[in-house]
Write a protein that binds this DNA or RNA. Sequence first.
DNA 1: GTCTATAATTAGATAGAC
DNA 2: GTCTATCTAATTATAGAC
Lengths: 201, 201
Amino acid sequence: MAEHSSPARPGRWRSGAESRQRILDAARALFRENGYGGTTVRAVAARADVDPAMVFYFFDTKKGLFAAATEMPAHLPPALESIFAGGLDGIGERVIRTLLENMDKSDRTPLAVLTRSAPTHEESEALLREFIDREINGRLVELLDVPDAALRVGMLNVQILGLAVARYIFKIEPIASAPVDELVARFGPMVQQFLTGRSPS
Amino acid sequence: MAEHSSPARPGRWRSGAESRQRILDAARALFRENGYGGTTVRAVAARADVDPAMVFYFFDTKKGLFAAATEMPAHLPPALESIFAGGLDGIGERVIRTLLENMDKSDRTPLAVLTRSAPTHEESEALLREFIDREINGRLVELLDVPDAALRVGMLNVQILGLAVARYIFKIEPIASAPVDELVARFGPMVQQFLTGRSPS
DNA sequence: GTCTATAATTAGATAGAC
DNA sequence: GTCTATCTAATTATAGAC
């Protein structure tokens, strides 16, 4: 929480871009904590230390702010590349590690934001499902090339959502405090098994 | 959605208990869909086809309504008994089947309601964690009797939350539409393995 | 770009008639 | 037990000064 401390250009204390960024950061935090309905534009403005009217200036409507705040982080897709780059071998460990490392350090945690909030039921579903389908499921189903690939990938989705909710939203112990390596060691081989192991049927 | 059809006692169309029940049903549905902040007392009343003032008459405040609506269903604890009754043998299948069968038919789905909604961040955490800790984790940790029991049970929590979110909230396919038997066959042995199998460390 | 002032709406909650 | 009417406060959103 650094107070305004820009030494350059006296008389023009904050750039528009900085205000915009402060608003986005505040919005993401509040949407994640209180959901869409539970978050007010005024609260976002107060936390960002800007005037409520500025929020509408930049994002027009509350929904516009939500859409901007829940945009997927730019640095996640590159990380996803490295998951698939190595092929199926060891993909269980890689997917769990990539997920945890990104969500641990990310302010955005889009999964957490979306699970908690959403202007409406349908929009929330669409946003999250589209992202997971496009970035993970589709490519993984191709890679697996087995008849029950969809179900196996579905099981991975359960792990992703379960970890996100348990670790970041409800902070259920010991999952919330476990080191990444520990969780990778536990979940990685298990994921590897149900993705690439023989079918139970 | 049966319309008022009580043949007894003409002139007194709805009992207080019935109105109370209608309000609770409507509240659960809306809290689950839109969260606490996104649900208005007026909307609940409209859906229950009663006057908004009635909601306050029965539950005093919006929070009181939420507390009543998210009360754990009475028929879930008995079901939990049967999970533990059989001991560790086959407990993986039993816990997954019990969870799915109860949530599939329950209007209450406390997990779904709680994951989505909550008056505040902290209350939501407390409610859900307390229930899971008391009804599942504590007893299971005892039963396991191994040094890393807490982590193994934590992994089960991840499965429970992941299944709940994927199947009931975001309806991610093919998890959402898969028959219970299929999911039990997939998740059951996996759960059994990480609960009672040898430690990976 | 930023703020003041305020319009328009909607929320939770109460009083009291029936 | 149920409804009408209403109060108060807070919310989204806009207009316009600086």
